[in-house]
Amino acid sequence: MNPILHELKAKQWIWNASNSQGKGHSKRLTTGYEALDSVLSGGFPSAGMIHINSYLGCGELRLILSILRQMPQHEVAQANNKLRVFIAPPFQLNAEFLLDEKIALEHLLVIKPATQEEALWSAEQCAKSGVCEAVFLWQNQLKHTQIRKLELAALHGQCHCFWFDNNRQCMSNLPLTLSLLLSRENEQMQIKVNKQKVGWAKPAINIKLPFKSRTQLRFKEARKAVNNIVQLRATP
């Protein structure tokens, strides 16, 4: 073998199509969006580090939470009271939003580390503990080795480690399981697969991710209540 190729392989920087079978990555879980499933060769990987590159606030977490809810793993995780850990969120998380997304607050942990080192350490601990369903990490710059460490931890603990980042100059050779670039145009969410294990980078696709309008629903419920009134008639 070419010595350079051999070296690259030893560092696990290249992926061989021949060993795609029988590995942890091969198991795919449907996302609930057909278009997304088709570009992701069947769905999300069952575990690993997933990179989400987007501007803050274009619906990235809502997309992921809706995908997680679709997964068969989700029910198992709920039954086992698995944790969802939010590490270094840039702003205060809103409990009302999380409840609306059907996340039980007792299975939620928010970690506000002082340094990047602490953030990565806690992400790794949570990911490999095996008691977390998902770890959400907000960090801007991660190094190759740091990502590799988290990826291994996530595979070991069978959990999804989501890394949110709004740095547009993304390196393509990072050891991630999946890397997505998200952008929004009105009701449509554009998803571009930058990198995925077992598969090629794919052109962008659009999926619809509107707001749910429960505000109206509340209003409707209130109107229903009006019908409950029983008219009492005075008998002469």
Partner: peptide, 11 residues
């Protein structure tokens, strides 16, 4: 809970 509430709130 109300729908259409943001995930992140500024302090």
């Amino acid at each position: 809970v109300f729908a259409d509430r943001p995930g992140f709130l500024l302090e």
